[in-house]
């Protein structure tokens, strides 16, 4: 009952925001709000960090994976690419990288991380490190290709390898 009155530990703040505790520290530095005392963070501060870090609620509630045969991991990746496009995350509007997998099981988070980095190496996505964290977007010149991958065609071999890897 009194939990909501208590300051949050680093781990509790990380759970609330859906990022790891070291990313919380990173945002504390950006916000110039690292506690002088122990890591006890007021709920309002944690909320502010979420806004500063452009942390979004999980994307996946009610999202169906593509139908048909195929590796479930690949379907998850295709769905993630579809979400990036439908939410308009192109060069003008990059999103926080971990927004893509927040709320998923750890293994699926790792899979998506691997896949998105693979697609960034293939110059289809752009992943940029910024003070608030890594941001991702679909490269403007690669929109059609990414759309095709999301629809299940033109899957790069490197992506298939990332799924199996």
């Amino acid at each position: 009952m009194l939990d909501e009155l208590q300051p949050l530990s680093l781990t509790a703040a990380a759970r609330r925001l859906g990022i790891d505790p070291f990313e919380v520290v990173r945002l504390l530095v950006v916000a110039d709000a690292v506690p002088k005392g122990p890591f006890a963070l007021a709920p309002e501060l944690v909320q502010r960090l979420g806004e500063l870090g452009r942390i979004e609620p999980p994307w996946w509630e009610g999202v169906a994976l593509p139908n048909g045969e195929g590796h479930p991991g690949l379907k998850r990746i295709r769905a993630a690419l579809g979400l990036l496009l439908s939410r308009g995350h192109t060069a003008e509007r990059p999103t926080r990288l971990d927004n893509v997998w927040r709320g998923l099981e750890h293994t699926e988070q790792e899979l998506l991380s691997r896949a998105l980095h693979t697609l960034a190496e293939a110059s289809l996505l752009s992943i940029e490190v910024t003070p608030i964290g890594q941001l991702v977007c679909v490269r403007d010149e690669a929109r059609e290709r990414v759309q095709a991958i999301a629809e299940g065609s033109d899957i790069p071999d490197s992506l298939t390898a990332a799924v199996e890897g």
Partner: peptide, 26 residues
């Protein structure tokens, strides 16, 4: 395994190192 752990000396020490990295970067 951070999700299964609670805060403690090991997390705090590591967090202070991360703080040093990002403060130096800033």
């Amino acid at each position: 395994g951070w999700y299964e752990r609670i805060d403690g000396l090991q997390t705090w020490l590591s967090a202070r190192v991360v703080q040093a990295i990002y403060q130096a970067a800033r």
